[in-house]
Amino acid sequence: MAKVLMKGTEAIAEAAIQAGCRYFYGYPITPQNEIPEYMSSRLPQVGGVFLQCESEVASINALMGGAATGYRAMTTSSSPGISLMAEGMSYIAMGELPCVIVNVMRAGPGLGGILPAQGDYFQATRNAGHGDYRMIVLAPDNLQEAVDLIQDGFDLSQKYRTPVMVLADGFMGQMMEAVEIKTRTIEDPKSNAEWALGWRKERGGARTIVYNLKLKPEDLEIQVTHLQQKYLKIRENEQRVERYLVEDAELVIAAYGTTSRMARTAIDRLRNDGLKVGLIRPITLWPYPVKGFRDLPASVKLLLDVEMSSEYQMLDDVKISTECRLPVETYGRWGGFTPSVHEIEDKCRELLGKLGKK
């Protein structure tokens, strides 16, 4: 498929379809409404099912049922809607059901506004729901990467039998960029997903049942231990990070998603003035790419965490990843405002000035 100019939400939807998604359950909430709207017309064309649910609670529980069949299934929402899905996410993780959940973040807390924000970092990486579980969390910074990560998300969810969240924001949902959406070839889930719900002729008519309820403490401990062993494998194998002009940097910006795009432009401007600034961009927010921070060059004297979050929610992960060896400063905007290129540039100049760099 050649590159096509598409809106972010529609590109995300088409990428899911080309990755084999055939079941979508959702409820409208801005700024992601074009995803279910697109799915409602496209899925029937490819033999899939779109279900408009009565609430986000219904959507996540319908997704649990769809994922239990072994077929690729998905839901999308925005910040307060994701909050309503929290209990269902925990059940899905307990049942080891593969699915993709997209959060096109809006500003908050409360109902907030439809402008971009990154205030859902804690919700995504520390688990929206209850109990000992994790989700893989992917954070694109452009539409082509969003397309690719949506498709990777389906593969990862089935590889590890776990929910995967793709974290975007209002900018990414509404912007238009040229994207290439490739078709992923997948096997019929009924031929390879032995765990999936349903009747098995090859098993003499036995039915496969998916359990996500363990009442006996010894059974629950065994299952949670099994989940933790899986999460250790994910931590080891699935860390993703981009490093930009870090090799000789004295100041490194840590930023993800849309914010990293402004940071990259600021870095290019600073480099033109001879100032050595680089970028480290987590692509997986969980597992957090600690490996990408551990071997920073000796030239790095300072890190700057830039976010659209008043609580600087990624800050602790940056500090943990560097084992607190380097000082970390912060800069951000919130409430729907984005740190501008000039603001990031000015903050870097201020910090470099304190290091004796002009």
Rank of each mutant, 00 (worst) to 15 (best):
R333Q: 15
A206I: 03
E343T: 08
Q151P: 13
R161W: 04
G119V: 10
L5F: 15
V102Q: 00
I35N: 01
G26Q: 10
A124K: 04
A124W: 01
R22P: 03
F122R: 02
G353V: 01
A196S: 14
Y288Q: 13
M89N: 14
S83I: 15
G173M: 03
L279Q: 03
A178K: 11
I12R: 07
A16T: 01
R207Q: 01
D316Y: 15
I181H: 00
G108Y: 12
A193W: 07
T75D: 01
Q144Y: 07
K230I: 07
K233Y: 09
N33V: 09
K276I: 05
N192Q: 15
I92D: 07
I92M: 15
G292N: 13
Q123I: 11
G205E: 11
Q223L: 14
G332F: 02
S55I: 09
P217Y: 13
E350C: 00
R126P: 00
A13W: 00
R294F: 04
Q45E: 14
P297M: 11
Y23T: 06
S41G: 00
D141F: 05
E177A: 08
N192C: 14
N142D: 15
S299N: 11
M64W: 04
E34P: 07
D188C: 08
E180R: 14
E87G: 07
L326V: 11
H130T: 03
V252K: 09
L302K: 06
M6W: 01
E54N: 06
L315C: 01
Y256S: 12
I222Q: 14
G108F: 13
V179E: 03
P98T: 00
E307G: 03
G173K: 03
I136P: 00
W334R: 05
Q174V: 02
D148V: 02
E194A: 10
T9F: 01
L84E: 11
L232R: 14
Y27S: 13
G198K: 03
T185C: 02
T208C: 04
